[in-house]
Design a protein around this nucleic acid. Sequence first.
DNA 1: TCGTAACAATGAAACGATTCAAAGATTTGC
DNA 2: GCAAATCTTTGAATCGTTTCATTGTTACGA
Lengths: 337, 337
Amino acid sequence: MNRSASIKDVANHASVAVGTVSNVLNYPDRVSQRTKDRVLKAIDELGFVRNDAARQLRAGHSRTIGLIVLDVGNPFFTAVVRAAEDAAALHGSAVLLGDSGHDAAREANYIDLFQEQRVQGLLISPVGDVTERLDLLRERGVPTVLVDRQADEAKFSSVAVDDDAGGYLAARHLLDTGRRRLAFVGGPTSIRQVADRLQGARRAVKEEADATLEVLESEGQTVLAGRSVGNSLVERGREGLPDGIFCANDLLALGVMQSLTMTHTFRIPEDVALIGYDDIDFAVSAVVPLSSIRQPTEALGRTAIQLLAEEVESRNPAHRSVVFTPELVVRQSTKAN
Amino acid sequence: MNRSASIKDVANHASVAVGTVSNVLNYPDRVSQRTKDRVLKAIDELGFVRNDAARQLRAGHSRTIGLIVLDVGNPFFTAVVRAAEDAAALHGSAVLLGDSGHDAAREANYIDLFQEQRVQGLLISPVGDVTERLDLLRERGVPTVLVDRQADEAKFSSVAVDDDAGGYLAARHLLDTGRRRLAFVGGPTSIRQVADRLQGARRAVKEEADATLEVLESEGQTVLAGRSVGNSLVERGREGLPDGIFCANDLLALGVMQSLTMTHTFRIPEDVALIGYDDIDFAVSAVVPLSSIRQPTEALGRTAIQLLAEEVESRNPAHRSVVFTPELVVRQSTKAN
DNA sequence: TCGTAACAATGAAACGATTCAAAGATTTGC
DNA sequence: GCAAATCTTTGAATCGTTTCATTGTTACGA
């Protein structure tokens, strides 16, 4: 309740100058053992805890890193967050986490908030197009690394997974197992990841003359959205059903799977093969174990922090773009007929 | 790159005193329209952003709240985190998130870090016993609310779900659907939640003279841990198999379900009924839709923030313990034979 | 026209840590 | 025993904001 002890209180209590206390904390070698002992004792007795605000006011910057993700509920981002936290901890930094929920306004709020906090840098998985806000950040000199989004290297460093390659992998796999009437489920297509995965799928489909690709736009990327798309597929009946479905993420795929299997009219993979994206933990424990595209989430988070550290340390802004290649994980849901 | 503009720069640029700029920011009514316009224009032209460090140095406290959870990867906590973030945003506060990963050392690190940040208060789902560290916090006057853990009201406010009641609900449901040879899967039992759920289950089992409860300790609370327990059950063969399994959380249940169904020797719910805990999104999309105990995660997060706000605002430390009651969700996995 | 009230604007002091030039103490070499 | 070199300690200045007592300005009624 009572104001907590300051460095000055410690100094008085130990009968030394404030500068000495500061030295004990930051440059222990400069202080004699005797003095050090006294100061440490005083610190202990008063329960002194450094005030980081004062510290960073003097330093001009904080020891925190801002991280804004599109959805903390999405296991993909959860994994990235965790990796980033661990990596940041190694650098002695903490992560301020923000969840934009795909909402540009919330994103903007967090960006403002983090600027006021004078974060060392920002990791962001931006909503929609790279906003003017990010350009502003750049002008203000806030080192920023885009996550899960390739960026113009003139402007930002970035870590991303090659979504086009992932889309290609998924569609190619469906084609390789004999499917020809493919469908892509995802949306809104304004989301770059969705657009890229679709593009990769198109590329694969073009390689087979007799293959077709239908696009089923979903309302978001959730299990619920997938279920809704699945329901509309079920209504079509056997005739109109594609024989291979590629979903822009696993949540959608699980939703689609639910709809298709709950009716017991369609079998996966016999009637229709299904593949998702992200390879979340639950893909393996779905009604039919779900084939998927695995993204190296740990590497993504770790590398993001590393790139940010590079930007923070070097004055000169030589941006780097790191692109990881995703990996196909085959399970029951796409077994060949 | 160049040092960002301070309130002083703005004052110069607008030819007013620093105090006036501060007033524009904090008490716009005290400033004449003409001056306000000039200052706002200057702010815009210089791209001024408040330095929160200086602000909170003066104020003596920050506008952030620390939140330490046991595992961000756990959907239960993810939901709580999200609710807490939203509720905090309404109060104009941001949430600093820490993931202790059930590790007391990491927890301690975060507590120290958050103290240095002079967080307004702390929301924590503590590792193991309420540590001395928390007592220290209390002495230092850092308002703290325990999350998902009932606390001595003399010491802390807390929000929790009645795990004993949840365990009772789950076991009672298995008994009500005719099962008698029950098993409890969870661990380590040193985790209070696990112990309480087990206790509730025991209470229910005692109500039926011919019912038994076997405890299968798991190595953690993950899908993998569940699979491992499930595998050992499969090895037992049909004879030794319980006819009703209650898992301390859904992840474990999904793991057990995988093991039991992959072998195709046991059917759920015909041979064995299975119920989890948490009702995570994926419970519904499991191989066999999983019955579960639903916890009011949003209410938990929201209430935690509210209790914290109460503690922050009132000087007098009248702690409150809010206990929510969980709810049974019946799905395929426990259908009566 | 003057006195007073209401309103605006001012700028020095304070918050708590770090820095650094300078002073003070101790050791070293001869 | 003394000067020089080295090691310790000091404390004022600084970071950027808010606060608040004070000063300056305007408006109004008498």
